[in-house]
Computed example of a mutant assay.
Amino acid sequence: MTRLALYTAGTKFITLIVDTAVRQIDACGHWLRFDKPAHVMPVVDLARDLVYRIPRAQNGIDEIDVSNPNALTRTHLATSDNANLLCAALSYGQNAPQQSESRLFCGSHDGQIFTFPLAPNGKTRKTDSEPAAYNVTDAQGNPIVDLAVSDDGTYAFALVQRQDGRPALVTQTFGPTPRSTYSGRPAWDTIENPRWVSLSPDRRHILVTSDKNNKYTIVDTTKNEARAYEGPAMSWAACRPVCHNKTAYYISCSYTFFDTSIRSVAAVDLQSGAWKGSADARGATLWAVGDRYLIWVDQDRGAEMLEFGDTRTDVVPVLNNCGPGKTDDAVGDRSFPPGALVDAAY
């Protein structure tokens, strides 16, 4: 039996429990209301039952304590200079055990990375002091739209939105001395209009995708090489890819004027860049993504869940028509970013 917690990203923040044994999705009793949907998919600190949600066009980031799903609490963490945050990342995966690095990393609209340390209680991030701000020199004041952080917290790979022709993927180092080093502080050219970046668990490969075209870049950090590839026509990245060792799962959509539904989930070989297989979403709405699972919702078929695997070369549906469920309130507008999907602690 698998029980998963789904944290939504719309104006209504709610915890839903996905129970694969009885094929049902149930909402917990308490929810929080926000003025606007989240800017990006929430980030979950599974070790502490905390969810981080970046508000749209506002300063800082919201920390939501979900340890008691029937009594959610919210704390706003502000930045020192009213910088708008665009992305957030932890140095360990949502479903991975906590490593020695516990800071929350956030990229801003003006080329900075803010790190939020733990409070003395070891449970929440500090609210009585300002987060540390690092000016990413190679970003040159341009927006950092996505981040991937190494498991020991010594490297952040920042994806920069820029128009000056300089490399869009840059590296920021954080002390202490890292366990492994890259030559200097490398930067790589990527595809046009890069939007998402993911780092493989072994730190060997970085995958960059775009929400405006069907191209992607794979960086081999051991060789300091970046190569561009092209997926099927009209396959634009819908969200950050999910990396499993030597395979990444690329969630694609076909944007038209009225439709932002997803089209497929493909397995991409990080060594060769080849597409190894895909599952057809047939225009379903992307609902939630985690390190091991994905859920989409179809108007006729209901909620369907896919499981990612390290060794499989395709994506296999493992749950069909998961219902009756509480999908109407949680899915909402298709312009919302997807929710976060993690192992349930309750």
Results as ranks from 00 to 15, higher is better:
7 Y>I: 00
15 T>W: 04
17 I>T: 09
21 A>W: 02
25 I>P: 01
26 D>S: 15
29 G>S: 11
30 H>M: 12
31 W>Q: 08
34 F>H: 09
37 P>L: 00
38 A>Y: 01
40 V>T: 10
41 M>Q: 15
41 M>P: 09
44 V>F: 11
58 Q>R: 12
62 D>Q: 10
69 P>D: 09
71 A>V: 01
77 L>I: 02
78 A>W: 04
85 L>M: 04
87 C>W: 07
90 L>R: 10
91 S>C: 06
96 A>G: 08
102 S>M: 12
103 R>H: 13
112 Q>A: 15
112 Q>K: 15
117 P>L: 08
121 N>V: 10
127 T>D: 13
132 A>Y: 14
133 A>L: 07
144 I>L: 08
147 L>H: 02
147 L>C: 07
149 V>N: 06
150 S>K: 02
151 D>E: 14
151 D>Q: 15
152 D>G: 06
161 Q>C: 10
166 R>S: 07
172 Q>R: 09
172 Q>V: 04
174 F>D: 00
174 F>K: 00
178 P>Y: 07
180 S>T: 14
182 Y>V: 03
184 G>M: 04
192 E>I: 07
193 N>A: 10
207 L>N: 06
216 Y>H: 09
218 I>P: 00
218 I>K: 00
223 K>P: 02
240 R>Q: 09
242 V>E: 10
248 A>P: 03
248 A>K: 02
255 Y>Q: 09
277 G>K: 05
281 A>E: 01
281 A>Q: 05
284 A>N: 10
288 A>M: 00
289 V>R: 03
290 G>C: 07
293 Y>C: 12
303 A>P: 01
307 E>S: 14
309 G>S: 15
313 T>R: 13
319 L>G: 13
323 G>A: 11
324 P>F: 11
328 D>G: 12
333 D>T: 10
343 D>E: 14
